[in-house]
């Protein structure tokens, strides 16, 4: 079980706004987070990963306190090791597809399995700048999975994939996430994108 209760002041184009989220996420569940643009969905994911700090809040992941502002606890992103699929993919231009996965994991069997799952075997020596948008997005997902995260955070992670590829990837993702016992939180603007993937939803407004 993951329990999150955070409050953070954020700036939007409409002015200052207080992002407030309080929810519990069952272990192994996939939660879709949705809400208007600029409301703080990405900030919410960044707070969970430890990349941003809220004014007040508490995050407990499987009994371990990642953040407790009242008690002065704030684990670093390195300690939290949440898998994060960034909206801009955040791929490393100096690394090939295989090197990306090797950067996250030393398990060569898992790396080969992920490459097959993402249909990237024949591109494993390519660098990101030589991949299509869809391939780059798949690589970002595979890299986040390579570290077998207990918590996977996905920011618009299927936006560049065509319907067929997305449906195939979701089928494989469901299997691997169940195997890793990973809890997933995915931010998405489009209901269609997470169809068949998310089993619960959270609205931020």
């Amino acid at each position: 079980m993951i329990s999150i209760n955070i409050q953070k002041n954020i700036k939007t184009y409409k002015g200052r706004y207080r992002l407030t989220v309080a929810d519990s996420f069952p272990a192994g569940s996939v939660t879709k987070v949705y809400g208007p643009s600029g409301i703080g969905k990405t900030t919410f994911l960044r707070i969970i990963a430890g990349l941003s700090t809220p004014e007040q809040g508490k995050i407990v992941v499987h009994g371990q306190t990642w953040l407790d502002t009242a008690a002065g606890i704030n684990m670093s992103p390195q300690e939290r090791k949440a898998g994060f699929v960034f909206q801009d993919y955040a791929l490393f231009p100096n690394m090939t597809v295989r090197e990306h996965l090797q950067y996250a994991s030393t398990d060569e069997l898992l790396i080969s399995r992920l490459l097959t799952m993402g249909r990237m075997e024949s591109f494993d020596s390519h660098k990101p700048q030589h991949l299509s948008g869809g391939q780059q997005q798949r690589l970002a997902i595979l890299r986040a999975l390579a570290q077998r995260p207990k918590l996977l955070l996905m920011d618009e992670a299927f936006s560049a994939l065509d319907d067929e590829l997305r449906e195939d990837l979701i089928t494989d993702l469901k299997i691997i996430l169940k195997e890793f016992e990973t809890t997933t939180i995915i931010v998405s603007h489009h209901a269609q994108e997470t169809l068949g993937f998310a089993d619960r939803s959270l609205k931020i407004d």
């Binding site: 990963a49 990349l51 670093s76 390195q78 090791k81 898998g83 994060f84 955040a90 890299r143 570290q147």
Partner: peptide, 9 residues
């Protein structure tokens, strides 16, 4: 940030 979330210093 991506590197940090992978546990790298």
């Amino acid at each position: 940030e991506a590197s940090y979330t992978m546990g790298k210093s």
